[in-house]
Amino acid sequence: MSVLECKDLCKNYGHAPALDQVSLAVEPGHIVGLLGPNGSGKTTLIKLANGLLTPTSGEILVCGMRPGKETHACVSYLPERTAIPTWMSTAQLLDFYGDFYADFRRDAAEEMLAHLNIQPRQRIKQMSKGTREKVQLIMVMSRAAKLYLLDEPIGGVDPATRDYILSTIIGNYNPEAAVVISTHLISDVEKVLDEVIFINQGRVVLQSSVDQIREEKGMSVDELFREVFKC
């Protein structure tokens, strides 16, 4: 069964369509890049899958269910902006996630935090922006979820932090789960992707495996992206 499935999915803001007749499926065991220019509908699709928005028409299913209270148990979501409570210490944040999510793997989170030399008493507000982003990602990836939705996980961080974030994603997701990474930094994430979905002006223009793109087009994903979306 697909972890995420869309059938003729539409979402309008007023009269403006953000998503237009989107049909796609994401299977377990895959890391999928949701790629497109700014304003193409990536964040809208992720918010719909997380139950933060409702479709105008069409259907979206997560783990075979419409997004809502039941699907929150199988979706782990990283929003574009850091959303962890800054007044908490690292230890309080671990307790908070442990209380909130039955699938939270505290030992995995503690191991990754120790790797970054983040102390249990350290408060989130005392951390740099890059460290906060790492901490939030560690929390998201420490759940044994079925679907990880990561909205611009490497957007505002330096190249070394990007490498750490990508290795964290690969090393910690449940192999029976799927990861959807929304980004416009293609060359940075390409090495971890199994599949890509190109989206433009609310429409899916391509869904393909990365291997297929390289074999059939003789191009990297980044090169194909630049060709498809050139101004």
Rank of each mutant, 00 (worst) to 15 (best):
G68T: 03
E5G: 02
V140N: 12
H72F: 08
R203M: 07
T54C: 07
P159C: 13
G41T: 01
Y173C: 09
R226P: 12
Y97G: 03
E5A: 05
A109M: 11
Q136C: 07
M65D: 10
N172A: 00
A144E: 12
D158H: 05
S208R: 14
Y173M: 08
L137N: 05
E216P: 08
L53P: 00
L35S: 09
Y97H: 05
G68P: 06
T44L: 08
E176S: 12
V192E: 04
S23K: 14
H30L: 14
S142K: 07
A109E: 04
Q212D: 15
G39P: 09
E223D: 14
E5Q: 05
H72D: 04
M88G: 01
L185W: 04
L52D: 00
H184V: 01
T54N: 15
T71K: 14
R105D: 15
I124E: 06
D211H: 01
G171R: 13
E133F: 10
T86K: 00
M65E: 14
R106C: 11
T54G: 04
L116Q: 13
V26F: 02
A16M: 09
I31T: 05
S40G: 07
D95C: 09
N200L: 12
T54W: 10
C63V: 02
M112L: 14
D188S: 12
L53A: 02
C6N: 05
D103W: 10
